[in-house]
Design a protein around this nucleic acid. Structure first.
Lengths: 136, 136
DNA sequence: TGACATGTTTAGAATTATTCTTAAATTGTA
DNA sequence: TACAATTTAAGAATAATTCTAAACATGTCA
């Protein structure tokens, strides 16, 4: 994937740090927190500062490259966002899965007089793995 | 509403502070942050401490009396939530509205092998007020 | 290319948010 | 009312986030 091009398209200058962060997000769809991103990448970029990660995530968020989501214990994690899709968070193990199944989407609808331009669906429950373990 | 009874039902002892907080949440559906709740109620309960608000919200959250939601600037706000319903956050004025219109709900469905027990839908766009102002 | 202007990163300080701690107060129960 | 258990309060401690200013990098244009 040509992240340089993607960032330029969004008017974001493609610095080394930003490129590493976006590549990390794309390759590891684990919905990391700022701290997780910082810890993973400081091996690769020893001078990396937390501030840069904060700034970058804010920048990416305002360009809709990422979306913040709340984890079970109210921590902010980021997903690398492309398609409109839902999340499934397991109440047993805490893992957050992407769900690509399409639901009744409502983009551009008018709801209670408000014009919808974005939407997000969050699901919670027990994931397939934990279900298996319970039944074992 | 008999909040004493509601709290007792959930196994939460109905202290003065908790009753005031739940009453505040129910009367003012503004999706407040901890800070907002603290500031609103310290007039009523001059000795109120932030810790109590934090503890209470955590307690209410684990009893599903409230749900945390992320505001536009990634702050944690709480909604007094009972019914499954959606949110609409205006990207112009930042207000968060409740939307009670029913969508295709998926409770207890199996999605990608995961068993869904809770769900939440978040909408964003331009609210009716801001739409009016734009057209004016 | 070289020098400038602009934008970005860094590191640590500052601030803000959240949790922890412990003593005092409150609550439920008998 | 008295007792045990729970809850609250206040501030200290910690964690998360933002701010600041200096150094660095990048793109532009002569």
């Amino acid at each position: 994937m040509d992240w340089k091009f993607v960032l330029r398209e969004k008017g974001i200058s493609p610095t080394f740090q930003r490129l590493q962060i976006i590549a990390y997000l794309e390759e590891n769809r684990v919905h990391p927190s700022v701290e997780m991103i910082y810890n993973e990448l400081k091996n690769l970029i020893p001078t990396l500062s937390r501030t840069t990660v904060y700034n970058t995530m804010k920048l990416f968020q305002s360009s809709a490259l990422v979306k913040p989501i709340l984890s079970e214990n109210n921590e902010i994690h980021y997903e690398f966002n492309m398609e409109p899709h839902a999340h499934f968070e397991c109440t047993e193990c805490g893992k957050i899965y992407d769900v690509f199944e399409e639901f009744e989407f409502i983009k551009d609808k008018i709801v209670d007089g408000h014009k919808v331009t974005e939407h997000q669906i969050s699901l919670k429950g027990i994931c397939s793995k934990c279900l298996e373990e319970k039944n074992a």
